[in-house]
Computed example of a mutant assay.
Amino acid sequence: MTGPLTPHAAERVDLPGPLAALVTKKPGDAVALLVPGYTGSKEDFAPVLDGMAEAGFRTVAIDLPGQYESPGPEDESAYLPAPLGRVVAGVVEHLAADGKPVLLLGHSYGGLVARAAVLAGAPVAGLTLMDSGPAALPDGPRRTALSLGEPLLRRQGIEAAYATREEMYAQLPMPAELKEFYRNRFVSSSPQGLLGMADGLRHEPDLVASLAETLRERDVPALVVAGEGDDAWSVASQQDMAARLGAPFALVPNAAHSPNTENPRGLLDVLLPVWRSWR
C-alpha cells in the first residue's frame, strides 16, 4: 500500500516538545526533517522514509503541535506559521546538536511553517518547499472548504467536522483500515490546531522576499518542488516563488498535491540528487 500506512523501518519516538515523530534507525551523514501539512501527520511521509534512509539521510518526520499524536496548546494563534516555525526551529537545533547538517522539508502548510522556522533562525543546511506557496491559499475549492468547515467545527465539534470528510472518503476506492486511520488522525487532532492552521492558510502574507534575503545571507540552498497537477497553489505560482528565491524548481510527474504518497519514487528521484549536492 502506498500512503500513510506504507510499511517502513522507522521507529516511533517522542522529540522534545513533546512532538511525536518517526525516525529512521540507519545512521546517516545528514538529517532530513520532514514537516507535514494541514490535517496531516508524520505518517504522510511513510512511503519515502526508507528510501531517504538508504540514501544516507537519517530521516525524521514529525507531527506538528496539535496534529494526531502531538499535544498542543488551546490558543488558536499558536498554530499560525510563525509560532509553529519557532517550534520547528527548536527541533532543528536539537537534531543539529550532534554536528550533522539538517535539511528541512515542509509540505503544504508545513512549507509555510518551515519558511517561518528559517526566518526564526533555524540552523538548516538546506530548505525544500513542497507543494507550498508564497502566501495564503488562493481562491479555490480548498480555501472554500476551510471557510465552510470553520463554523461547523466551532458549533458542532470535531466529530461533526469529520463527517463531511467521511462522505468524501466513502466515494473513494480506499481500504477500510486507511479510512479508519484518517478518521482516528482527524478526531485525535486539536480543534484549536485545526482552526488556527486554517486561519494561517487563509491569511499568511507573502514573505518570499524576506526568506530570499535570509537564505542569501546565511548561504543556505533551497529547492521548490511541486506535483505536476497540484490543485492547492498553482504550479506557476510555485515556479515564480522559486525564481524569487533564486532556487531550482522541479516537477514530480504523476502527482498532484502530495507527491510523497502519490508518486514517492518520483519524489525521491527529484529530491535525493539535490540533497546529496547540499551534503
Rank of each mutant, 00 (worst) to 15 (best):
K42N: 09
A61N: 12
A53G: 07
A30D: 05
V23S: 03
P36Q: 00
L64H: 02
L34Q: 01
L64W: 03
G37H: 13
S41C: 15
A21F: 10
L64N: 05
P65L: 03
G51W: 10
P47W: 06
A53E: 07
S41M: 03
G66R: 08
L22C: 03
L34K: 02
D14N: 12
D50Y: 10
A32H: 07
K25A: 11
T59N: 09
V48W: 00
V60M: 06
G40N: 06
G28R: 06
E11H: 09
A53F: 05
E54Q: 14
L64E: 11
E43P: 04
T59F: 02
G17H: 05
P18A: 14
E43T: 10
G17P: 07
K26E: 14
A30V: 05
L64D: 02
K42V: 01
G37E: 03
L49V: 02
L34Y: 06
P18F: 04
Y38P: 05
L22M: 11
E43M: 11
P27W: 06
A46Y: 01
P27E: 08
P65D: 09
T59Y: 04
A9H: 15
R12G: 12
E69D: 14
P65C: 07
Q67T: 06
G37R: 09
Y68S: 11
D14E: 15
D63V: 11
A30H: 00
F57K: 01
D63Q: 08
E69H: 13
T6H: 15
T39I: 15
R12M: 14
A32Y: 07
G40L: 10
E54T: 14
H8E: 12
E54V: 14
F45T: 01
G56N: 10
P27V: 11
K26W: 01
E11F: 02
A30P: 10
G37C: 04
G51K: 07
T39H: 13
G66S: 12
A9I: 01
T39D: 07
P36R: 00
F57D: 00
P36D: 04
A55T: 10
A10Q: 07
A32L: 10
E54L: 13
R58N: 01
A32G: 00
P65M: 08
G17A: 05
V23P: 00
D29W: 05
E69P: 01
R58M: 09
F45C: 04
L33Q: 06
Q67N: 14
P65W: 12
K42P: 03
